[in-house]
């Protein structure tokens, strides 16, 4: 008969605010367990661990015993106009119960319409109607998981013609109404700022920074279409200079925050990815050392 979901005694989930980690790909698990290098924590996509059993669960259980873990959902569609998929929410709750992660996060985005999951994070217009819907979905998610979640700011490739407020105001209201935290993806801020023409520093300054529980960093691609530059959030290269500069500037405002390097395409060998986490950790150390008031 099936073995019940394991109830292993994991170490308490503690994620230091100064920890730098990486998004963990299944192909890197063995190397991480062998030598984490400067990597202090890892994040996995929840949807990759929703199957009943199998070797991938064995591997993540081993990771969880040794490293702080974050579970990052990419398919819940918090910004969908339709009702949340309760079967999917139950699967997410199952992953969270199974791994007792230090952090759980999802996106300010929608992922499809009923019957057609598009496997993408599509942008939500910042309207009062959308705010009501997203707040309801965040409430429902936090109730189902029994814990607060972090909500990540999206990459945007276009502006909606309708908008009742800007995105920092939308996220501030969401934090106020639901008690959720923010996952501040600085690569997404730079991508959206370049594509839509706003100031990334002003965007960060307008957020409720005390609610930021995690920072994401990644690289993005630059394309030119009919003479117009478009930044594409492909997580396919090392963290760029503009994103690193915004990271240092943000840390000066927020103090230390668990930081994650994401890489989803053109994935480098483990030692290279781990070394990139090390470079980010150096930036954090330098910024915090130069900070006038101790945290």
């Amino acid at each position: 008969m099936p073995i019940a979901s394991p109830t292993p005694s994991y170490p308490e989930a503690v994620l230091p605010r100064t920890a730098v980690g990486v998004g963990l790909k299944p192909s890197h698990i063995a190397a991480l367990l062998d030598d984490p290098g400067p990597v202090r924590w890892v994040e996995v996509h929840a949807e990759n661990y929703m199957q009943d059993g199998g070797p991938l669960h064995r591997a993540l259980e081993a990771v969880r015993r040794e490293h702080p873990l974050s579970v990052h959902g990419v398919g819940l569609s918090l910004g969908g106009a339709h009702d949340l998929d309760t079967a999917h929410l139950a699967r997410l709750a199952g992953v969270v119960a199974r791994y007792e992660p230090a952090l759980v996060s999802e996106h300010l985005a929608w992922c499809g319409v009923p019957g057609a999951f598009l496997n993408d994070l599509l942008p939500v217009p910042c309207t009062t109607e959308a705010l009501d819907i997203v707040a309801r979905h965040v409430d429902q998610t936090q109730a189902a998981l029994g814990r607060p979640i972090l909500v990540e700011n999206p990459s945007r490739y276009f502006a909606f013609r309708i908008q009742d407020m800007d995105e920092p105001a939308f996220l501030s209201a969401l934090v106020r109404r639901t008690g959720c935290g923010l996952l501040l993806d600085l690569n997404n801020v730079v991508v959206s700022a370049r594509n839509l023409g706003f100031d990334p520093s002003a965007y960060v300054a307008a957020l409720p920074l005390e609610a930021v529980g995690e920072i994401h960093l990644a690289g993005h691609a630059v394309r030119v279409v009919d003479g117009v530059e478009i930044r594409i959030d492909d997580h396919g290269s090392a963290v760029g200079d503009a994103v690193l500069a915004l990271y240092a500037e943000t840390l000066r405002r927020t103090g230390p925050r668990p930081t994650l390097v994401e890489r989803d395409t053109d994935i480098p060998p483990w030692p290279d990815l781990a070394a990139e986490a090390g470079r980010v950790a150096t930036v954090m150390t330098q910024v915090l050392a130069a900070r006038p008031d101790p945290v």
């Binding site: 490739y157 276009f158 502006a159 023409g197 279409v225 009919d226 117009v228 594409i232």
Partner: peptide, 19 residues
């Protein structure tokens, strides 16, 4: 629905279509 910002709106939505 979508502001083009120098492009046809469909060219911007094309990024999501590709993804």
């Amino acid at each position: 629905l979508v502001a083009g910002h120098g492009l046809d709106p469909a060219q911007r939505v094309q990024i999501h279509r590709n993804t």
